[in-house]
């Protein structure tokens, strides 16, 4: 994942690559975010123009979904599950400890841009709760020490 400032041509190429699909808007937003770590403001009018929508409509779709970011996240994204099964195994205390240690709130990024912590509602690891995901690595029976250790090693 690059946190770059793509040119209009870069963005248009990502948009065009999805245009053979039926209902291509979500695949377009995913493709841009995957390539650039977020969906830059500059992409919206290009998407709107290509799909014959208004920029407001594209904004409306993008902002509806939790996944899409307007700005790049920290270098490491930690997702902590807040759902019931994880709560039954102490997820609230875990998230409190992790957020306190980093000095940020839900959705926040550390001032050095290293870590972003986000809430997630279920990773499907409900029989080995509490669950967390760091980058694309899943952690079952997570505890604060384990998450600390994973982040220690990460620049």
């Amino acid at each position: 994942m690059r946190h770059s400032h793509p040119t209009s041509d870069d963005l248009q190429a990502l948009i065009d690559a999805q245009m053979s699909l039926e209902g291509p808007l979500l695949p377009i937003l995913h493709a841009i975010q995957e390539a650039h770590g977020h969906v830059p403001e500059a992409a919206l009018p290009l998407i709107a123009e290509t799909l014959n929508l208004t920029p407001a409509e594209v904004h409306g779709v993008m902002s509806f979904y939790h996944d899409f970011r307007k700005a790049p996240a920290g270098r490491h994204v930690v997702k902590l599950c807040r759902a019931e099964a994880c709560q039954s195994m102490g997820a609230n205390a875990l998230s409190e400890a992790v957020l306190d240690k980093l000095g940020i709130g839900w959705g926040g990024t550390t001032p050095d841009g290293r870590v972003t912590v986000e809430a997630v509602y279920c990773l499907g690891l409900c029989a080995c709760a509490p669950a967390a995901m760091i980058g694309d690595r899943l952690i079952g029976r997570a505890d604060a020490a384990r998450i600390d250790a994973e982040l220690e090693g990460a620049a």
């Binding site: 039926e22 209902g23 291509p24 808007l25 979500l26 695949p27 937003l29 995913h30 799909l51 409306g60 779709v61 509806f64 979904y65 939790h66 996944d67 899409f68 997630v120 509602y121």
Partner: peptide
């Protein structure tokens, strides 16, 4: 088709809207 983190899209009509590239209403 990959969802985008909206729980309500598990509801079938909201899923269909999402599939069509709309808000998952």
């Amino acid at each position: 088709r990959v969802g985008a983190g909206a729980y309500v899209c598990g509801e079938e009509t909201s899923l269909l809207n999402s599939l069509e590239g709309k808000r998952g209403v």
